[in-house]
Design a binder for these strands. Structure first.
Lengths: 196, 196
DNA sequence: ACCTGAACACCGTTCAAGT
DNA sequence: ACCTGAACACCGTTCAAGT
């Protein structure tokens, strides 16, 4: 017989376990299916148990956001932006999840910190570097959010049929991101040149 | 006695009436409180009646989005962006409502069309003009979305206390938008110069 | 310290039936 | 053509109570 017998009190879950479960629900069901009940099911626990670990759903979502937007090290503006975009793309609805936590002030983006440093190194003033970082973050999240919602709409078939979902158009998206990014970065650089 | 006596069959509602009701619920309760039941209450109608006018909530939201992002005429990139931003700011949670309809391909932005034209006039190629317009739209919506969620968080008190909500910081936001906008526009212009 | 069980006050959507 | 009434399958959150 096993040391853990069948009538043992149920094993304790950590905050980490709860976030793990949330990540797997997100991967399988997307943000629309990321409910407290489904997370509880994965953990084989009552919904109310989750509220011992997190005060509410938004706090749990903030922890999930932290898992999605992992720290990266990049010293150039474009590299930080690309790294942020890749971390968002690596998880279903990543941009939307991160966007909500960010807007509520529940998440600090390491990519943003890197962008501020890169902007300072490029010669921007403190205030301009903050603005530049926010501008880049907004661009990356906005673009990726839009892209991920369209991908999901394509799968579900909920989108307007006039939306162009042809493979050629989808494939081109990566290039569009980089083209727009180049414009934003060049604008940031020229604002440094203007201040010099 | 009035021509419309009390036992008359209830008066018919138009699609316009439904959207009107949705607009007033949005103004009073925000997007989180914009439920089909509340809209039905305003119209003094059963929830199911709304489904005769709109196939689902997203379609109704798209109509609401059309009301928010009203057509404007501007011939410069920065003017179109500012006009779009102002239309979003004029309605509670305007950026979030428009963002979701846009991502699902259920809304055409006249501001975006104007931006494409302005970019072409500035000398961009067709493809670059599309990218430029999308970049600007992402910037405007991302910035305004973030700003409106923070304003709401400030009212509700749901935000992290470390978030700086001092009047000075809030007042400075308008300037930050324009500073970031100037960077993006300058980047777009320089991409035209590079292609020349 | 961590969880159960049950309840509260909601959701969006469907559908037969009425006028 | 437009709406009612009722139901279905969900939500997030709270709270007394258990171990």
């Amino acid at each position: 017989m096993n040391a853990a017998s069948a009538d043992q009190p149920a094993l304790r879950r950590s905050k980490t376990d709860v976030v793990d479960a949330a990540m797997s629900v997100l991967a399988e069901n997307g943000i629309a299916g990321l409910s407290m009940r489904r997370i509880a099911d994965v953990l084989d626990v009552q919904v109310s148990a989750l509220y011992w670990h997190f005060p509410n759903k938004q706090a749990l979502l903030a922890a999930v956001s932290g898992r999605i937007a992992t720290g990266t090290d990049a010293s150039h503006l474009a590299d930080s932006a690309t790294a942020l975009r890749e971390s968002l793309l690596a998880h279903r609805d990543g941009a939307e999840v991160v966007s909500s936590s960010l807007a509520l002030g529940l998440l600090e983006l390491s990519a943003r910190t890197q962008m501020v440093e890169a902007a300072l190194a490029a010669g921007l003033s403190d205030a301009a570097a903050e603005v530049a970082a926010d501008t880049l973050v907004h661009y990356v999240i906005g673009f990726t959010f839009h892209e991920q919602q369209r991908l999901h709409a394509a799968v579900v078939g909920a989108a307007d049929p006039s939306v162009d979902l042809s493979p050629a158009r989808i494939a081109v998206t990566g290039g569009d991101f980089e083209a727009g990014l180049a414009m934003v970065v060049s604008g940031i650089r020229s604002s440094a040149a203007a201040a010099r």
